[in-house]
């Protein structure tokens, strides 16, 4: 019996030593972002969606699009993109939003005033292994500049640029930006976006 006891306690000690060694050997705990990961993530170029692309998808009522507004609720209420869901950046990891952000079907686009918060949110969610998440390039500032108040290209500009300008002018009218010089509408239409949730149960609680 004595020998058996020593064997089992020894097994526990070996196991814990194993945990200790792998923890120390990897030096940085597994749940921390390592520098090489950050470089890999930053150098990915397909993480952005341009304002033109977003406008096109919004205008075609693309049902697979989920817009996430990362700003404070106050800012969200005063102006937001059509159909956007407000998840302030500090709540991005909350369980209640996980189904919205982490799923395969929808294209999730993060935005804030610039692309600052969106990049942070994107890095976080990328690190968690979430797919199909994108950043609105230039954020709302860029949205206003390019879509709501497009500037007319100079006469020597290429045909492409004129086409883009025409598209933007149409988009501007669609999103209530009015003419290129008009006021930004504060009551953009907000069609409800149906969110297809991946089946996911919250982990329950032992005794509680």
């Amino acid at each position: 019996m004595k020998k058996l006891d020593a064997l089992f306690v020894g097994l526990l000690l070996i196991g814990s030593l194993w945990a200790f060694i792998v923890n120390t050997a990897s030096n940085t705990p597994t749940n921390r972002i390592q520098p090489c990961d950050i470089i890999n993530i930053i150098s990915q170029s397909d993480k952005y969606i341009t304002t033109d692309e977003l406008a096109r998808r919004l205008m075609s009522d693309d049902p697979t699009l989920t817009l996430i507004d990362l700003r404070e609720n106050k800012e969200f209420v005063s102006y937001s993109l059509p159909g956007a869901i407000n998840i302030p950046i500090e709540k991005i990891l909350d369980n209640e939003y996980r189904d919205i952000i982490n799923q395969d079907v929808q294209t999730v686009v993060f935005y804030s005033n610039s692309s600052d918060l969106a990049v942070k949110a994107w890095m976080l969610t990328k690190r968690l292994g979430y797919k199909n998440n994108f950043i609105l390039k230039g954020g709302l500032n860029n949205w206003v500049e390019t879509i709501l108040r497009p500037t007319e290209p100079s006469e020597t500009a290429s045909r492409e640029e004129f086409e883009r300008y025409n598209f933007r002018k149409a988009a501007s009218a669609y999103f209530g930006g009015g003419s290129a010089t008009g006021e930004v509408s504060t009551s953009a239409p907000k069609p409800k976006v149906a969110i297809k949730r991946k089946k996911k149960q919250a982990a329950g609680g032992g005794c509680d």
Binding site: G204, C207, D208
Partner: peptide, 13 residues
């Protein structure tokens, strides 16, 4: 399998 902890009083609750 279930993401749950073993428990007893929770079931009684």
């Amino acid at each position: 399998f279930s993401g749950e902890g073993l428990g007893a009083s929770g079931a009684m609750k």
